[in-house]
Amino acid sequence: MNEKPKAGLGGEVVLPAILIVVTVLYLIEGMRTLRPFQEGTAGPSFFPIVISVIMIVALVSVMWSAWRRTGRKEKSAAAALAEPLKVVLLTAAYIALFRPAGYFVSTALYVLALLYVFRFKARHAWVNLVWAVVISGACFVLFSEVFRIRLPKLGGII
């Protein structure tokens, strides 16, 4: 967390724009389902309305600042996003497989895939497989044996 990542994908405008949409949906949900005032004082939606307004003002301010900085070209982040996207997709697949395939199989596959994403340089492909089993096994020992946490098993066996 100690290095500042570079900006990209016109994100200075895109991200606040997405957050504005989220905030407006949040505001609508709050106003639709809850009352801001109740018996002369603040109700369940009063505080969310206040923070939504603060959020929108701050987001507009950030977007305005970004627009004003004309002439500053942002790097295309498509290439930079490719690797994180792979990690996100792999993690989503891992989560989906976690219960049906059990801890060990899903984790070994996940680690194996991550080793490729992180460009683990092994002389032989089987070394990656060994590392995947070792890492999965080490984490299994940590969770299941040391901390006695029940993890899902494929067919109740592994």
Partner: peptide, 11 residues
């Protein structure tokens, strides 16, 4: 780093 971050990801 690959081994390290793979382990961190699982944990």
């Amino acid at each position: 780093k690959a081994v390290l971050y793979s382990g961190i990801a699982v944990v």
